Computed example of a mutant assay.
Amino acid sequence: MNQSAEKTVFAPWHDPDETPLIAFSNVTKRFGDFTAIDSISLDIYRREFFALLGPSGCGKTTLMRMLGGFETPTSGTITIDGQDMAGVPPNKRAVNMMFQSYALFPHLSVWDNIAFGLRRDRLPKEQVAARVEEMIKLVRLDKFARRKPHQISGGQRQRVALARSLAKAPKLLLLDEPLGALDKKLRQDTQFELMDIQEKTGTTFVIVTHDQEEAMTVASRIAVMDDGRLIQVDTPDRIYETPNSVYVADFIGDVNLIEGNASPRGDGKTLLHWAEGQPPLVAECPHAPETQARCTFAIRPEKVSISKDRPSDRTNVIQGRIEDIAYLGSLSVYSVLLANGTRVKAQTANNRRLSRRELTWEDDVWLSWTETAGIVLDK
Rank of each mutant, 00 (worst) to 15 (best):
M135P: 05
M135Y: 06
I136G: 06
I136R: 06
K137G: 15
V139N: 10
R140S: 15
L141P: 09
L141H: 06
D142Q: 14
D142R: 12
F144Q: 02
F144W: 08
F144G: 00
F144E: 00
A145I: 07
R146I: 03
R146H: 15
R147C: 03
R147N: 12
P149H: 07
H150Q: 13
H150I: 01
I152W: 02
S153T: 03
S153G: 07
Q156E: 14
Q158V: 10
Q158E: 01
R159Q: 05
R159N: 07
V160D: 01
V160R: 00
L162W: 03
L162V: 02
R164Q: 06
R164L: 01
R164T: 03
S165P: 01
S165Y: 04
A167Y: 02
A167D: 09
A169E: 15
A169L: 12
A169N: 15
A169H: 15
A169G: 05
K171F: 07
K171W: 07
K171V: 10
L172M: 14
L173H: 05
L174W: 10
L174F: 13
L174P: 04
L174H: 11
L175M: 15
D176R: 00
E177C: 11
E177I: 09
E177L: 11
A181M: 12
L182V: 12
L182G: 03
L182Q: 04
L182T: 09
L182K: 03
D183A: 03
D183M: 06
D183I: 05
K184I: 02
K184Y: 09
K184C: 01
D189F: 11
D189H: 13
T190L: 09
F192H: 13
L194D: 05
D196R: 15
I197T: 09
Q198P: 11
K200A: 15
K200L: 12
G202F: 06
T203M: 11
V206N: 12
V206K: 13
T209M: 08
H210W: 03
D211Q: 12
E214M: 01
A215C: 09
T217K: 04
V218H: 04
V218E: 04
A219Y: 07
S220T: 15
R221F: 10
R221N: 08
R221A: 08
R221D: 08
R221E: 08
R221K: 14
I222H: 00
I222Y: 01
A223Q: 09
A223D: 07
M225K: 07
M225V: 08
M225R: 06
M225C: 07
D226K: 14
D226V: 13
G228P: 01
G228K: 03
L230V: 10
L230Y: 06
I231R: 05
I231C: 07
Q232V: 05
Q232L: 12
D234Y: 08
T235W: 08
P236D: 02
P236V: 06
D237I: 07
R238E: 15
I239W: 05
Y240D: 01
E241S: 14
T242F: 12
T242I: 14
N244Y: 04
S245C: 03
S245K: 12
S245L: 03
Y247M: 08
Y247D: 04
Y247R: 06
V248T: 12
A249F: 10
D250P: 00
D254H: 10
D254M: 11
V255K: 00
L257N: 00
